[in-house]
Nucleic acid binder design. Sequence first.
DNA 1: TTCACAAAATGAAAGTTATTCATCATTTAT
DNA 2: ATAAATGATGAATAACTTTCATTTTGTGAA
Lengths: 236, 236
Amino acid sequence: MSNSAAQISQTQTRRQKVEHREEAIIAAASSLFNDKGYRKTTISDIARQSGVADGTVYLYFKNKEDVARAVLADFYDGLTQSAQNGVDALSSPRERIEFFARHHMGEVIGNWRILEIVSTLGHTIDNYEGSDIYALNRAYSTVFIRVAKDAIQQGEFAKDTSPTILRDIFFGSLEYGVRTLMIKRQQNDIENFVQGLMNILFGSGQARNGAVGNQLADRLDQAVSRMEQMLDENET
Amino acid sequence: MSNSAAQISQTQTRRQKVEHREEAIIAAASSLFNDKGYRKTTISDIARQSGVADGTVYLYFKNKEDVARAVLADFYDGLTQSAQNGVDALSSPRERIEFFARHHMGEVIGNWRILEIVSTLGHTIDNYEGSDIYALNRAYSTVFIRVAKDAIQQGEFAKDTSPTILRDIFFGSLEYGVRTLMIKRQQNDIENFVQGLMNILFGSGQARNGAVGNQLADRLDQAVSRMEQMLDENET
DNA sequence: TTCACAAAATGAAAGTTATTCATCATTTAT
DNA sequence: ATAAATGATGAATAACTTTCATTTTGTGAA
């Protein structure tokens, strides 16, 4: 005959306990993955570090991959949020893209081992499109896609530029850039890479001296000059 | 008291047998990896398909990862070779880079499951620089680096462009592009992506409203207008 | 050909993990 | 207080990888 409020409060208490355990497992897994990598971390490791029995992990997660997914979800949520916030605080497309690049590289470098999981699991999953990792990735990259569309709209890129191709170029470049920085142990050279990428993406102005594109531009330039001169002479 | 030539010939015969076995194991593993993926392929599978006992595999390879490495080495050798050949057959930097992109995407898509291994092996950064996979990767990307340096030299990119950053942008973009094509099951859209990438890398001319390129276009527009007007006036 | 020996090959056994499940412990509801 | 439900446990299982004591095979000498 306890009222329903009491019931609710009791179930909440239980749920809180449950959530606390779940969080403890995720936290333990996250730290272990970052430490030893996904493959070398065993369920027993995770159970021990979070103070439960091996079997208990399976009450909260379907299997080891599921634990990894939860860890990733945690990470992506924060990443998407902070990226969106940063983008909102800026106005010009170019500034936004530059911020995004810097932000992304910093976060990825700081959580390198955890992101290994994406490539480890990404390939394995048969129906990646339906997976939650895909959804997380998508939510994040959507933040960029919106910025990209705006940039195209505002003439920073050719009108017929495909936003999805731009996205692939952007994230692909950053991923490889990070890998190189990690390998070379020059994790502070983010700035250098970001500037290099911006120059390629937006064109650095000074480029293409004798190249085909410029030869055409030069010829065109000369032709326009001749035309203008002719017009000037005739219009008097 | 058989002469040393005979001895050598005999050991060669034996070594040939050994190499044949090794090749058979690599071939079996390669086909199985491509079929079922690395993780789901067991040593027993590989042993059965190459007609040896499980234990025999370990006479030729230290462990399962070692088998995978050999398969990868095989793949990279061919990739590097064909990339170099293709590049050698072309002269302009732009054509070379475009060919490289197409070639790379095609090969990666065609050997998708085998390349899983690269990420599956979860190379921890500590020992990556000394690993054989790193050396293979390096040999391959060196082919591109040479092309890139040449392109910069010839003015296709700003003189101060870093070849290694260009390399990261190039391969990173392609990797992400392939991933997208695989997910979307549009593996024949390589051409579309390659063109999009080329436009970004080399600048598409029509881009950037107020930018340098457009000033020329504006002058052209104005000159043409004046000419048209002049012609109209003269034709009466 | 036969023998002794080294090199190769074998597959049963041992070692590692992920995962399950019968059993025990703790809440909750009556 | 007690039955029912929910949570937790860790030993057992299953699926592999890897090892190693034996067996088989190939080779050169007698």
